[in-house]
Amino acid sequence: MTELIAVEDLAAGYGGPSALEDVTFALRRGERIGVLGPNGGGKSTLFRVLLGELQPLRGRIRSAGGFGYVPQTERSRLDYPVTALDVALMGTLSRVPWWQPIARAERERALAALERVGLADRARKQFGELSGGQRQRVLVARALVQDQPVLLLDEPFTGVDEPSAQLLELLLDDLAADGRGILIATHDVEQVARWDEVLCLNRRQVAFGPPEETLTPAVLAETYGAEIVRLEGVPAALLPPHHH
């Protein structure tokens, strides 16, 4: 099957009113889906349900395999005695049984992953002594080491400088070209316009589809709430003609 994830009429929450409703979308091989939404819109909640950390209140999720995962804010302790390489190697836990020692090939794979995020020269540095953006990239390298068919990236560009962000974006393009499916939560509308599909969440699914259909003023207004819409970020070509 080419569908890596198929989600149908999903609802999820934390006990109170549901944090997310009416979510229906599919992620196919080679696709990058940008997940847009305001703070509290339910992006991380969607990832948590997909990962199985949170039980859905309703709906169905079919998925073809495991997930590589880059969490949003790194909640990792900065005084923890690990190097960047150690953190990248943590990604092996989802493939190599936990009681087995790490083989040389895995070490090389982790070094290659650090190289792909532009941190080859920082492999032996203590994780806590890296800058915030570098730590974020180490976590992306860890997800690469996980080597799963689907990647869930929760705001991976936060705190990452412009050159590194470009590197990351090219990396995502490569991974998609390899046939992986990628779900990326972000606040950057301009960036989302370059990807294959857009999922707009505001406590429920506002829209899902290709950027040229979803990045309309009406949808963005509904996604972000009318009072704070700023459309400077959207390429003019995306706006329907009658709005010009």
Binding site: L51, Y69, S76, Y80, V82, S94
Partner: peptide
């Protein structure tokens, strides 16, 4: 190592 580093994502990492 994984659980001590970040408990909340450790399950997602296996």
């Amino acid at each position: 190592l994984v659980v001590g580093f970040d408990r909340s994502t450790s399950r997602a990492l296996g």
